[in-house]
Simulated scan of single mutants.
Amino acid sequence: MTTEKKAPARRPRSPKPAPAAEACGTCDGSGETTTTVRVGRKRREIGAIQSGLCPSCLGTGTA
């Protein structure tokens, strides 16, 4: 009989967390932008505001 020393078992490494995505600069991470409503041939503003999807990030909020 031989007495051999066994190496201790290694613990598996935990996966690194994914890097956080940068917030979109156009909508500041909300996914929505606001524009003023324009009407008529001369495109006058009527004082109303409408919201819509951000054209840069398409509503995801991340760049």
Results as ranks from 00 to 15, higher is better:
residue 1 M to F: 11
residue 1 M to P: 12
residue 2 T to Y: 04
residue 2 T to N: 05
residue 2 T to F: 06
residue 2 T to Q: 03
residue 2 T to M: 00
residue 3 T to C: 01
residue 3 T to F: 06
residue 3 T to D: 01
residue 4 E to W: 05
residue 4 E to A: 08
residue 4 E to H: 09
residue 5 K to A: 11
residue 5 K to I: 06
residue 5 K to D: 00
residue 6 K to G: 12
residue 6 K to C: 12
residue 6 K to S: 14
residue 6 K to N: 13
residue 6 K to R: 14
residue 7 A to P: 07
residue 7 A to W: 06
residue 7 A to F: 08
residue 8 P to T: 07
residue 8 P to C: 04
residue 8 P to N: 04
residue 8 P to E: 11
residue 9 A to Y: 01
residue 9 A to V: 14
residue 10 R to G: 09
residue 11 R to E: 08
residue 11 R to G: 03
residue 12 P to V: 02
residue 12 P to Y: 00
residue 12 P to D: 01
residue 13 R to Q: 11
residue 16 K to Q: 14
residue 16 K to N: 13
residue 17 P to F: 06
residue 17 P to E: 10
residue 17 P to R: 14
residue 17 P to T: 05
residue 18 A to D: 12
residue 18 A to F: 12
residue 19 P to M: 03
residue 19 P to A: 09
residue 20 A to T: 01
residue 20 A to Y: 03
residue 21 A to V: 02
residue 21 A to M: 11
residue 22 E to Y: 00
residue 22 E to F: 00
residue 22 E to A: 15
residue 22 E to M: 10
residue 23 A to G: 03
residue 23 A to M: 06
residue 23 A to T: 11
residue 24 C to W: 11
residue 25 G to Q: 10
residue 25 G to I: 07
residue 25 G to F: 07
residue 26 T to S: 14
residue 27 C to A: 08
residue 27 C to D: 14
residue 27 C to W: 11
residue 28 D to P: 00
residue 28 D to C: 03
residue 28 D to F: 09
residue 29 G to S: 02
residue 29 G to Y: 02
residue 29 G to W: 02
residue 30 S to N: 12
residue 31 G to I: 01
residue 31 G to S: 06
residue 32 E to S: 14
residue 32 E to C: 08
residue 33 T to N: 06
residue 33 T to F: 02
residue 34 T to Q: 15
residue 34 T to K: 15
residue 34 T to C: 15
residue 34 T to P: 07
residue 35 T to F: 15
residue 36 T to P: 02
residue 36 T to L: 05
residue 36 T to M: 05
residue 37 V to D: 10
residue 38 R to V: 06
residue 39 V to N: 11
residue 39 V to K: 15
residue 40 G to A: 03
residue 40 G to H: 06
residue 40 G to R: 01
residue 40 G to T: 00
residue 40 G to N: 04
residue 41 R to A: 14
residue 41 R to W: 02
residue 42 K to N: 03
residue 43 R to D: 05
residue 43 R to W: 03
residue 44 R to D: 02
residue 44 R to N: 10
residue 45 E to S: 12
residue 45 E to G: 11
residue 45 E to L: 01
residue 45 E to N: 09
residue 45 E to V: 05
residue 45 E to R: 05
residue 46 I to K: 11
residue 46 I to S: 10
residue 46 I to P: 10
residue 46 I to R: 12
residue 47 G to D: 04
residue 47 G to L: 08
residue 47 G to C: 06
residue 48 A to G: 00
residue 48 A to K: 12
residue 48 A to R: 12
residue 49 I to H: 07
residue 49 I to Y: 03
residue 49 I to T: 15
residue 50 Q to V: 07
residue 50 Q to C: 05
residue 50 Q to Y: 02
residue 50 Q to H: 04
residue 50 Q to S: 15
residue 51 S to R: 12
residue 52 G to W: 00
residue 52 G to F: 00
residue 52 G to A: 01
residue 53 L to Q: 10
residue 53 L to F: 09
residue 54 C to I: 04
residue 55 P to A: 15
residue 55 P to E: 14
residue 55 P to N: 13
residue 56 S to D: 06
residue 56 S to I: 01
residue 56 S to C: 04
residue 56 S to F: 02
residue 57 C to A: 03
residue 57 C to K: 08
residue 58 L to A: 13
residue 58 L to F: 14
residue 58 L to S: 15
residue 60 T to W: 08
residue 60 T to I: 09
residue 60 T to Y: 11
residue 61 G to D: 09
residue 61 G to M: 07
residue 61 G to F: 04
residue 62 T to A: 13
residue 62 T to Y: 14
residue 62 T to G: 04
residue 63 A to M: 05
residue 63 A to T: 08
residue 63 A to E: 07
residue 63 A to D: 05
residue 63 A to G: 09
